[in-house]
Amino acid sequence: MNNVGRMTTILKQILNSYKLLGECLSVTRVENMLQIHRFSSDIRNSSQTYNELYKYWYNRFISDDILEPEESAGYIFAHLFNKKTISLVPQSCMNNLIPHEKISYVNDLCVKRLKRMPIQYILGEWDFFGVNLKMKPPVFIPRPETEELVKHVLQCIKCRLNNHGSKNSPLKILEIGCGSGAITLSLLHNLKHENVKFVAIDATSHAVQLSKENSKLLNLDMLTKLQILHIECGVAKSILLEKFAPFDIIVSNPPYIPTSDMKNLPDEISMYEDNIALHGGNKGLDVIDGILELAKHMLTKNGSIWLEVDSSHSSIFRTSYADWMVESYKDLFDNFRFCHFRKSI
């Protein structure tokens, strides 16, 4: 029996027992893995230009129904030249033959994409609101919409700093569910010389660790302005945060996807990103309600809360949350995605 035959036998033997996030491997996926194996063997012994290999993978991504096939291939091949996008790579470079040692490397990256791994995890980094962040599964990947949330919060902070005057006490900002650190670190990057103090917390240790790694990479790990803490929930959260409270601003991109929508998530999300950072309970409000309850005790009298929410939540907040004055803002896709809460007078 040849190597491919042996591999087929082994994969079929484990098919009924091997699961990835609760979903069994399909025979189609087994066949795809075998095709990838055959292709990998073939190109190791052939001469390919970057452009030829790029076109192969671009077409392969299309045939395998990979989301954003052109962008996926483009980011991977741009990465080979230390560029952010394929448009920044000179065509003369793309026409060069690929060095033998790079063939396996680019092949491995593209195979990961065929397995639906998000491009951010494949590259191990991603740009967000002017900072470059290290990315690791299963920590939640920041989306373009969240950059808009940062814009709103940054404007709010600057306005409050202007009204804060020359007070000795810093403006204090709490982020709940910091993930990779995208929100807090991008804000602090823009406010390094301002009188501010950030506290960023997350319920998962791997997220806290990644936030700390990113703070060091960005030279933002300054204890006088930033604390990143692993705090799980409930009473422990309140006790640990009390020594930093009250906060002038609380910001969060919490889990807000309703239970009924979780089954509709693409494989890139459901297979790789932490469900804890996504699932918001029956109506998507479980964590949001917890944040608003905590804020009643942790927020200054004139404090603000900024949340990224599901598009269905805006109307609920306006009609059912009498303790709060709520303003809603649309994202770049014209959905009501951000809410600004202030205590009702």
Results as ranks from 00 to 15, higher is better:
residue 287 V to S: 08
residue 312 S to F: 04
residue 321 Y to D: 03
residue 306 W to S: 09
residue 286 D to A: 14
residue 283 K to R: 10
residue 286 D to P: 03
residue 283 K to A: 00
residue 293 E to N: 14
residue 298 M to K: 15
residue 290 G to E: 12
residue 303 G to M: 12
residue 274 D to Q: 14
residue 273 E to N: 13
residue 297 H to K: 15
residue 296 K to S: 06
residue 281 G to V: 02
residue 288 I to A: 06
residue 285 L to Y: 05
residue 281 G to M: 06
residue 274 D to T: 04
residue 318 R to N: 08
residue 278 L to M: 10
residue 291 I to L: 11
residue 271 M to W: 04
residue 303 G to P: 10
residue 305 I to C: 07
residue 290 G to D: 12
residue 294 L to C: 12
residue 289 D to I: 06
residue 293 E to M: 15
residue 322 A to I: 05
residue 288 I to K: 04
residue 304 S to C: 13
residue 280 G to I: 04
residue 308 E to P: 00
residue 274 D to H: 11
residue 311 S to I: 04
residue 294 L to D: 13
residue 307 L to S: 00
residue 305 I to V: 07
residue 301 K to C: 12
residue 287 V to F: 07
residue 283 K to F: 00
residue 291 I to M: 10
residue 291 I to N: 08
residue 316 I to F: 10
residue 280 G to T: 04
residue 276 I to Y: 07
residue 280 G to D: 05
residue 321 Y to V: 01
residue 295 A to E: 00
residue 317 F to A: 01
residue 275 N to Y: 07
residue 310 D to W: 11
residue 304 S to M: 12
residue 321 Y to M: 07
residue 305 I to N: 06
residue 289 D to H: 12
residue 292 L to R: 03
residue 285 L to T: 02
residue 295 A to H: 14
residue 280 G to S: 09
residue 304 S to Y: 01
residue 312 S to T: 05
residue 311 S to W: 05
residue 274 D to C: 13
residue 301 K to W: 08
residue 297 H to S: 15
residue 299 L to P: 03
residue 282 N to D: 04
residue 274 D to I: 04
residue 313 H to W: 07
residue 278 L to A: 13
residue 293 E to H: 14
residue 290 G to L: 11
residue 301 K to F: 09
residue 317 F to W: 01
residue 276 I to H: 13
residue 300 T to G: 13
residue 272 Y to H: 15
residue 288 I to Y: 00
residue 304 S to F: 00
residue 276 I to K: 15
residue 302 N to P: 00
residue 279 H to W: 01
residue 294 L to Q: 15
residue 272 Y to W: 12
residue 278 L to P: 06
residue 277 A to N: 13
residue 318 R to D: 05
residue 295 A to D: 00
residue 311 S to N: 09
residue 286 D to N: 13
residue 316 I to V: 05
residue 275 N to R: 14
residue 279 H to N: 11
residue 293 E to R: 15
residue 294 L to A: 14
residue 305 I to L: 12
residue 307 L to R: 01
residue 281 G to H: 03
residue 304 S to A: 09
residue 275 N to C: 08
residue 319 T to D: 10
residue 300 T to L: 15
residue 316 I to E: 08
residue 296 K to M: 11
residue 314 S to D: 10
residue 310 D to L: 08
residue 296 K to F: 05
residue 306 W to G: 08
residue 276 I to E: 08
residue 274 D to Y: 10
residue 300 T to S: 15
residue 281 G to I: 03
residue 318 R to H: 11
residue 315 S to G: 01
residue 315 S to K: 13
residue 321 Y to C: 04
residue 307 L to F: 08
residue 276 I to N: 12
residue 298 M to V: 01
residue 299 L to V: 03
residue 301 K to A: 14
residue 290 G to Q: 14
residue 273 E to F: 04
residue 280 G to P: 01
residue 312 S to Y: 05
residue 283 K to G: 00
residue 290 G to I: 02
residue 273 E to H: 09
residue 284 G to M: 07
